[in-house]
Nucleic acid binder design. Sequence first.
DNA 1: TCATAATCGATTGTCAACAATGTTTGGGGG
DNA 2: CCCCCAAACATTGTTGACAATCGATTATGA
Lengths: 224, 224
Amino acid sequence: MTYPQLKKITMGAQIAAMLRAAILGGELAPGSAVVETSLALRFGVSRGPLREAMRELIDEGLLITVPYTGTKVLELSPADINDIYSMRICLEKFAFEQIWDRRDDAFREQILQRHAALLAAIDANDDVASIEAELNLHGLAYEMAQNAILMKTWNGIRGRLQLYWAAHHRAHHMQGPQRTGHDDYVSLAIGNDLDLMRAEIESHMQRGLEITKAQVQGELSTRV
Amino acid sequence: MTYPQLKKITMGAQIAAMLRAAILGGELAPGSAVVETSLALRFGVSRGPLREAMRELIDEGLLITVPYTGTKVLELSPADINDIYSMRICLEKFAFEQIWDRRDDAFREQILQRHAALLAAIDANDDVASIEAELNLHGLAYEMAQNAILMKTWNGIRGRLQLYWAAHHRAHHMQGPQRTGHDDYVSLAIGNDLDLMRAEIESHMQRGLEITKAQVQGELSTRV
DNA sequence: TCATAATCGATTGTCAACAATGTTTGGGGG
DNA sequence: CCCCCAAACATTGTTGACAATCGATTATGA
């Protein structure tokens, strides 16, 4: 037996999900124009719900729009990446501080499970799945913190990172998540030394930022 | 000679500003319904731009909506206030860490100026102006940090605080910002001891949170 | 009287046409 | 050859009408 959906999902919401997948999947590359009429045609709806969907992605920071002119997929500068990573350090430490004393078996089970999923995606050489698995792993602390504003901010960061990584992976065969990259993170997250966890978050992010910057450097030298 | 505006402002954006003012000004109290058709009539526009405006306030967290049913002004629970204040501690410390080594004369001038504006509003017994002035004072660090995600998060916090404070001031003659409440904050912000500034932010927020909680307590006892 | 189902009103969701704006392109003059 | 202007084009902004859904109310039967 199939259960009927209790609340009708609007077309705008469904299209927002599809559009998000198209952007994060690289179908719409950063900087490319996003035109209402053509997308409305593609999804088989009117411009109304499509605008609603685009508005949602604009709020998430995946799209930027200028009145009467147009909308395009966000392009992140190296400075933006810096901002994102410094925010990640701040917020992820905060998230762990909030949940530290109420971590339970369900938490430990979840983090091990998500780590296993990440390892599986890496072993399968699936870049898209690896990126998503890594973000899911880091997202656990945010989810458990149960703070609406924190969660919304994390979602914005998460989307931008996914957008950036996905685009660069496809374009430049960028180095993906490493198999041993999260061992310390996971073991400390289920351990009992909050200060060590704080330090791990900082070094973990620093490492990620350096990998990203090295990639940008490589891009620039390629173009010279 | 008056200069023409370079970019045309859409009706939706203008209405978003008016609607935001109406909510923060208390004309639309927390929990009250916000109906598209009646507001469209009131502002003299169609439902299209009005939906756009409402969508903007939904993103800021001032409104909440459920499909096919309705939209209303956000009501904050004591737990929400806790979340907001813990986020404020985290983010404001972060903002000052980011700007600490590049504070200049313009910064010192601005913070003194905004502090003076706050004192003036308190002396004038203008609650609405006092709230706005206090948030402007705290906002300076965020503005100077020049981090888009940080700024967006702060705006969300700022709006919720303004909504909550404004509503409770009107309803319960709640205690407003105190005249000497920000002296330490300002002097430490232009000083040279970052650790002391961090401690001041924590104690400042703790104080604000306790005032709010005492107010909620008073409300509850009044109703019994 | 109570539980259940049909109906009504209110509100939001969706659509297609029209208006306003920004950008581009092509021509004319210096 | 370059610069400026004007007209055409592409895109978004706005509108009013219609459809879908939800919540409450009322009727109905046991």
